[in-house]
Amino acid sequence: MTTFVELLVNGISIGAVYALIALGFVIIFKATEVVNFAHASLLLAGGYLVARLWPVVGFWAALLIGIAAAALVAAAIEFLVIRRANVASHSVLAIVTIGVDIVITTELTRQIGTDVLAMGDPWGSQVVRFGGVTLAETRIVALVTAALLITAFLLAFKYTGWGVAMRAAAEDAETAALMGVRLGRVSMSAWAVAGALAAVAALFLCVFPTPGLDRSTSLVALKAFPAAILGGLDSTTGALVGGLVIGVTESMMSGYQNDMAFLGRGIGDVAPFLVMLVILLIRPAGLFGTKELARV
């Protein structure tokens, strides 16, 4: 029973981190109808800067710089690549983002080499115990931070002028422009917010129990793709639910993999994609989505 609770809380915590990534993915899609395959490289860029800078400027300053830099890189991609690419189809833009991803990821993996970079976070490998349940401090911080960020984002999306502009542009870009909404700003801000969220997620993907940031970190980030897709690419609620489903599934499958040896080792890594496939077979637009992936 205690194992179950531990696995569940860990799953929710990692799921909340996936939700941060998926949320960014979804707002970019809503604002620009582009499926951003460069998302994992944004995450890697943010995490890399934190890992390199904390020995120099301290952890918190490094974290702020990492977040700001990821937001800047994302805004730059929007401004220099997406906005200028004069193509008819959003699928072509999606392929363009694959190109951007390859450029950024290749350069960063070259910089990282075979190193495993520590994040310099203040929580280290400390654990807390509630009754018989043992949890890593990093997992609790991740859960609380992700929950706060997601709440703040959803409130802004619902109540601020920025959120109204964003939703109007997502629903009908031409009419939003007719009402004076500056579409360029909306889409650039969507990319920047997504970049910032990805950098925060990078931190929590690389702290204890993970040894640190290495060249495979962007692969871990890929698990957020099924989260966004199974929730529905154009649904913020979907991103949250998708993230949690993937996090909990992965945690449970890894935790109980000895009992499920018949499924083979490493089922925890495959599970997110299996869950996504099953859900897409039943609901092609994802759990909360309104647009089918085929229309992307």
Binding site: V164, R167, A168, E171, D172, E174, T175, A176, L178
Partner: peptide
Amino acid sequence: VPEGRRVFARM
């Protein structure tokens, strides 16, 4: 005011 009203239906 565009043809066909074009209100933001989901808002």
